[in-house]
Design a protein around this nucleic acid. Sequence first.
DNA 1: TTGAACTTGTGATATAGATCACATACGGAG
DNA 2: CTCCGTATGTGATCTATATCACAAGTTCAA
Lengths: 223, 223
Amino acid sequence: MHGSRKLFEDIPWAARKAFVSSSRELELRSREILFHAGDSGDGCYLLRSGVVKAAVIARDGQERLLAVLGPGAMIGELSLIDDEPRSATISALKPCRLMHLTKPAFFRLADNNPQVYRRALKLLAHRLRGTNDTVVAQGTVSVSGRVARAFASLAEGLGDEQSDGRILLAHKITQNDIAGMAGVARENASRAINDLLRAGVLGRAGSFYMIEQPVALLDMAEI
Amino acid sequence: MHGSRKLFEDIPWAARKAFVSSSRELELRSREILFHAGDSGDGCYLLRSGVVKAAVIARDGQERLLAVLGPGAMIGELSLIDDEPRSATISALKPCRLMHLTKPAFFRLADNNPQVYRRALKLLAHRLRGTNDTVVAQGTVSVSGRVARAFASLAEGLGDEQSDGRILLAHKITQNDIAGMAGVARENASRAINDLLRAGVLGRAGSFYMIEQPVALLDMAEI
DNA sequence: TTGAACTTGTGATATAGATCACATACGGAG
DNA sequence: CTCCGTATGTGATCTATATCACAAGTTCAA
């Protein structure tokens, strides 16, 4: 749970209140789609509770997952900023509550609280570092390493750190999702996951995954 | 030459003057390195003239090129924003003139001109869209498509559009650079480039490349 | 001008990972 | 419970791309 994922950390209370009052609540049922890549739209959303995935469908029909996002995440900020179409499809992996903020409201708020601008810049900078790393990893890291990476990224997006340092991924994740994040075939994701399980780096807690050895995982992921 | 690459478009003159007066000039000789990935550093640079490349070296020693940047480009803004180490190594491909802006100067300037914040956000949003696309392309587009992509990206970074619509890449670029951008082996980049030359999509203008059919190129790149 | 150090082109081979083809297991609806 | 759709595991191919191995160009510095 890296701080820079949260837009409103370090933001004065007055601004938070202004945000809440100028935003509108909405809910999503499981599997419901918030918007599709290519849609027009200029507002952004703050995820209050639940889990969503951001994905794009490549020309050949393959679904590539860019991220799985948990509470506190900012969604749709690219279109907010540059008025271009939505860059990814957002769909709910479980029931979600969101706040919707319009573009004028956001900029009014930010103009009055430069902290908001700084926070937003940090958020984008953090994402950019992440995608840059992904680009490099894509080309140089093996399938099993990229699968490890996918788990690391899930841990960041919705991991729940236990008191003993292990990280619980308290959400049902399919091999298809993992494969989509790692950019590998589902069958090979399966093999890689089992390797991680056998190595004891990863475990299963009920129907959820548990990262038993976060350090070892990051190492395999070449992070 | 997409507008959003330039930090100071639409920025009031007063702010530009403030920028110039609070910044320091510096020069790089060809092949000289501005900074290395991992270095600490919190200032940013504006490229006035010349060409640089942004690259990272993967764990296995392979060089992966993130971008080739021409005049007007912003460099080192990630560390400016989040105080983390430099994310890439910047080196000059030809002699360059740069302006250096310190972090306090940037934020002072931006706080007084929210346009600067908006502009910076747009810049990062644009990059993020680009890297997201790259991630997807990495996993789904063939080698020749990715090489086409590399040329498209070069065109954006330092292309010179002719009156007849063709785009001149007025800089000596090696196959190694192309391979590094596309994330492929140099030998295969060579084959792909020759395919593009034979197809007439690409041409050679002296020792430079010329994009003869930009539309066809983008199509091959699956953009 | 003559190397020496880069570049580029192209065939031959090796291999990681995709794809195919199933068997098996699971989970929710009736 | 029991059936059906979805998720998983694992072998056997197949193929795109890396890697290897050279032969020619080029560039540039001495």
